[in-house]
Nucleic acid binder design. Structure first.
Lengths: 253, 253
DNA sequence: CCCTTATTCGGTATGGTGTACGGAGTTGTT
DNA sequence: AACAACTCCGTACACCATACCGAATAAGGG
């Protein structure tokens, strides 16, 4: 976080939307890397070690390039994150032919969960506005609203429904064990090993603090091991209840 | 992100759970600040400028103390964040007398939203495990399960219900405009002004990219201004649908 | 063939970060 | 008065993003 850098929306948008496809063979020396390689290297790093580990130095090092050379291809770290995000979202496979709106929403919810599971750092990168900046994200949003269009709802209602499902998916992936460590949550851990070690050391202390006497209801659920994994079953449970509620509400109106 | 620091779970847990209440009048010079002041200063800073702005230097500066003095009271930045989080959660007011499980869950959901709205940085601090570390958070979780206890559900079902609602609340607050900037989302913006300026500059470009022809369904919803604010109404909509779905599911079983 | 010009590469410097270390100074106890 | 415990904090180190600018490179035009 150095000085201020006047950001240039046009530049990153051109990169994202491919308007910058340099057909010109250029004139200078041969580029040692491609934008694609940089994005991929960054993604690999973030996948493996989390967002904190993604520094320009390390990306450059991984590519065998000087740090500053990256700035030839990418305006800065932030913009690299945006590009990585768009690539991580990728193209959106359509729902099965003839799917109901509910099946379609479920389909897209699972795509979202796949994204957050495979690339936990996306949870920390995806600001509200990024949806409109990233072409792949925009396309996915359009697909969601396409699935809702036949219902003939108001724009507000469509936004409320899509927003609710999206909110659930994000929250479920972030709060759950989808990624204990590298979810970009600033727990302060850099390493999965660190995390494990911390907990094995902390557990004896916690056992004395979180007692059955003080927190009887929580303790009962904990004891039963119900916190072990917020897995697929839990994800589906909440999603289906939310969709149930939406369906019921639409029928009743 | 310096070298590795071997974390000491006992230390921060003692701070969090108040086991460290130094009854000893101590022997050295008078402390210039208290742990409480540090936590409060950090919270003020994070509230005003986001997590990125919360550096040990700036906290110390705000208190008129040398940077390293903070380490007398707090093991490190991470632990300070944990303490700030616990304080931000605070005590949990009980739901109204005689509230149904549904009313109680709604009550706790709104408490969560209040937390994330008033202190957006908590969204980035709250790791799954932190719930058990923070006494206030633990107490709140216990209250939630207390509300579910009369239903006689299995531990797994209770966890699925509580987890779903929590997931929705978190996702809704993070994805929404609850905090455009300082939600700790690493959008790369440090300032609300930056954010505004960026969008005013980016909008003309976006208008050319996100067209009605390419994204007809999304465009229709956007055009109607349905993205302007994911406000209270939207939050309540999704929450109520989720609770509807849970209620229906419990009745049907 | 050389020179111009566009372009990439990357070293250096600046100002930021967390925090390890150790010395200076202050206080209650002996 | 001496000691021990304690707080304060200056200095130092490793790391970070990135502004700036010169060096190296290659194509195009003469």
């Amino acid at each position: 976080m150095a000085e201020r850098k006047r950001p240039d929306p046009g530049r990153v948008l051109a990169l994202l939307w491919g308007t910058a496809t340099t057909p010109t063979p250029a004139r200078g020396p041969r580029p040692k890397v491609t934008l694609d390689q940089i994005i991929r290297a960054g993604t690999d790093l973030a996948d493996a070690e989390g967002l904190d580990a993604l520094s320009m130095r390390r990306v450059a090092e991984r590519l065998g390039v000087g740090t500053m050379s990256l700035y030839t291809y990418v305006p800065g770290r932030t913009e690299l994150l945006h590009l990585m995000y768009d690539r991580a979202v990728g193209p959106t496979p359509p729902p099965p032919q003839g799917a109901t709106w509910r099946q379609a929403l479920r389909h897209y919810a699972r795509l979202g969960r796949d994204l957050y599971r495979d690339h936990p750092w996306t949870l920390s990168v995806a600001t509200p506005g990024l949806m409109l900046m990233s072409p792949n994200s925009t396309a996915r949003a359009d697909a969601v609203y396409a699935a809702l269009a036949p219902l003939g709802l108001s724009a507000e209602q469509q936004a409320a429904i899509a927003g609710s499902v999206d909110a659930y998916v994000r929250g479920a992936c972030q709060g759950s064990g989808v990624s204990l460590t590298s979810a970009g949550l600033d727990g302060g851990f850099t390493d999965t090993d660190d995390y494990e070690r911390w907990w094995t050391e902390a557990t004896p202390h916690l056992i004395e603090l979180v007692t059955r006497e003080r927190f009887p209801h929580l303790y009962a659920v904990w004891e039963a091991g119900a916190f072990e994994d917020f897995g697929d079953a839990s994800f589906d449970y909440g999603l289906d209840r939310l969709l149930d509620g939406i369906e019921r509400h639409l029928d009743g109106t």
